[in-house]
Design a protein around this nucleic acid. Structure first.
Lengths: 144, 144
DNA sequence: TATTCACAGGATTTCGAAAACATATCTATT
DNA sequence: AATAGATATGTTTTCGAAATCCTGTGAATA
């Protein structure tokens, strides 16, 4: 559904939100270990999130990644847009290049509801909300 | 969501159902042209469907593919199983290797409903049903 | 029964996402 | 001002899905 980049991005953002703060920035090694993701690849993805102002970063000694209050309240859909673009929410279920109300694939009617649900899911969930599940022990970002 | 193989497989099966019959078998060239799919790759996928008895085939002169009555009534989920396996319906939304009720990812609660909807969609739609949309002009398998 | 047509199936190649690498740049600390 | 620790960024490599190629096999028909 989402690309690997997007999956790592969401997991990383949630972890940073749960563990970090302006005062306690989180390094790339720490992040990758806790979300079980490849280091160099994840570093690249965090650059994208940083450029899109979804996470903040600080270079140098004691540097790392963190989220400010505004960033914590962003919905996951912003991460999806930054990594995968908006095609996820308008693509056809069986791969037609164009699939619309006027020229639909046979699955279109049933599939468009699902697409909308996926969109709602990431639109209505904020990074902070997800992070809270972690700190409460109700959510995990890797196998324990 | 589904692999390319699965997308072509569903499109091909629907086309064969709509256009073919025991008396009028459909050749690979005809199929690929009408569902806009690569020939050799699609031929390979149709082999899989044939082995799984989802479509019937006939070699030799005037040969081709067709569906008998029983095959026409099969739900699309059989095609998904044959091409992609059952992982689509139990995988995690953000890529965790294991994601279950007892050790869920933060999106699990919201995502499991979506997964179930996807499953229902292909479980409750038969090949023939989809084919009927085609013949009625309410559905398409490629851009016109 | 020979030929031709069309699917079957193994082997190979292509292509892009995913991952790794190497180097630059920035900043706290001494 | 020098150094060390951390992210930023461009380049390269890996790997598997997707696509192609080539040969085998079965069936109809003349």
């Amino acid at each position: 559904m989402f690309s690997k980049s997007c999956e790592y991005a969401i997991r990383a953002a949630i972890y940073i939100s749960a563990e970090g703060s302006m005062e306690k920035k989180i390094g790339i090694d720490d992040i990758c270990e806790h979300i079980e993701a490849p280091k160099h690849f994840t570093a690249k993805i965090l650059q994208i999130l940083t450029r899109n102002k979804i996470v903040s970063s600080q270079k140098g000694v004691n540097g790392g990644f963190y989220l400010d209050k505004k960033q914590n309240n962003k919905p996951l859909i912003e991460i999806v847009y930054a990594t995968d673009g908006s095609d996820v929410f308008c693509g056809c279920g069986i791969g037609l290049k164009e699939c619309s109300e006027s020229e639909p694939c046979p699955l279109h009617e049933k599939f468009k509801g699902i697409r909308a649900n996926i969109r709602s899911m990431v639109e209505e969930s904020t990074i902070e909300e997800m992070a809270k599940k972690l700190t409460k022990g109700n959510g995990f970002l890797r196998v324990e």
